[in-house]
Design a protein around this nucleic acid. Structure first.
Lengths: 219, 219
DNA sequence: ATAGCAAGCAAACACTTGTGCTGTCAAGTG
DNA sequence: CACTTGACAGCACAAGTGTTTGCTTGCTAT
């Protein structure tokens, strides 16, 4: 009796056992692990079937090295200690004139996901973060150019000093500046220190998100 | 000498070696693998340091089982075939005045690895790429600020239009500009169009790499 | 100086583990 | 029926590997 993939029942059991074992222990099983846990009476049977599995490309083995079994496509990926990465949805474009896409309106699950390095922040910092591709040069004063990908965290308030995406209602413009609430007025300070700040009032300003990172690919 | 994380140099090397080994082989290294490849004279030294690494929670070990090392947080990822990120070594700092670290002089294996999203380029584009952290504002005209991480590909020549890290010999300065070879002279054009280009001659210029990406984390 | 201690070294030891054999048995095959 | 082949069993051996013990070394505190 064989299954649909051309493997015997025993081979399939072995294959599944290996996957399970690796998932559980983070290292591959020895032949005798397989033998004992699957109730096979001899190591040679396991070796025999492993050889077949390798010939069929289901696993790959590394010489006489103990536990030198690996499953192609099943790869160890570091996700926690020194560098992990996260995925955030790419929701579209951001330009100077048009408003941001509404994260609520887009099915985040369906959106293209991009991976961002852990250097950009912890899991906590990256919660509710989405990515937008920048079109145009309206944000060069924040060191953001055409084609850059900005990572935004959706929020409607901001602390002083945070870089926010703000919509100026009267001017009908979206801009990206550092936010400072100073008494009655709000100062929007370009990241580029040589440029002048903009002053406005709280009711002329809608914060649409906060910048947590920038990714740029250079040709 | 210890590094910032409280591990000795040797322990850090071992830890990095294990990570690398697992990445490469999909199974953990044996003590003797570590010993030989790191040039350690005795297995007991490796065992000794592994014990410390385990006490510090950097790794976890499984009794006397061969290759029973695993790294907490190094998690199985079944989607590796469609992996969206690459890792590149972080080799240090780049400032306006000082020369770049020599990639040849640094053991790339030992360096901290950071992950970069696939959006920054294909595996091919990211070959020979390393990362440097930018210190200072000498490159704002290339839309690169203090604290940014630049991804450089090591190369000593460049095509017109590419953004390169160039060392001006006479001026004793490192700069980051777009490269244009125009007859007898070379034009180094800041990315920021409002700024003036620099002209120099080929023998006053050493190209040290080419920028392939920028990653910025915003507070 | 001297004792204490972390770190490293070398070799011996013992367990783990992959690999041959050597058979057995059932199902084809000519 | 003799002969092959796939699948499995048992077992012994030889690598592959982790541990242990004893011996330096270099440094620090007493």
């Amino acid at each position: 009796m064989r299954s649909s993939n051309g493997l015997s029942v025993r081979q399939e059991k072995i294959l599944n056992y290996i996957k399970d074992f690796v998932r559980k222990n983070n290292y591959p099983p020895a032949i005798r692990d397989i033998q004992n846990d699957l109730g096979i009476s001899s190591t040679s049977v396991v070796a025999y079937n492993l050889r077949i599995l390798e010939e069929k490309g289901k696993i790959s083995r590394d010489g006489k090295i103990s536990r030198g079994i690996s499953i192609p496509g099943m790869v160890l990926n570091q996700t926690a200690l020194t560098s992990h990465s996260f995925t955030v949805p790419m929701l579209g474009m951001i330009t100077a004139g048009s408003p941001l896409p509404d994260p609520e309106a887009i099915n985040v699950e369906d959106a293209e996901q991009i991976e961002v390095p852990a250097e950009l922040g912890s899991a906590d910092k990256l919660r509710d973060v989405y990515a937008l591709k920048v079109r145009g040069y309206s944000m060069v004063d924040a060191l953001i150019g055409d084609g850059d990908i900005v990572l935004l965290r959706y929020q409607e308030t901001a602390d002083n000093g945070q870089t926010v995406v703000a919509r100026l209602v009267d001017e009908n413009a979206v801009t990206l500046k550092k936010f400072y609430h100073e008494g009655e007025r709000i100062r929007l300070q370009p990241a580029n220190v040589t440029m002048e700040p903009i002053f406005t009032t709280p009711d002329n300003l809608h914060i649409q998100g906060r910048v947590v990172g920038v990714i740029r690919s250079v040709e």
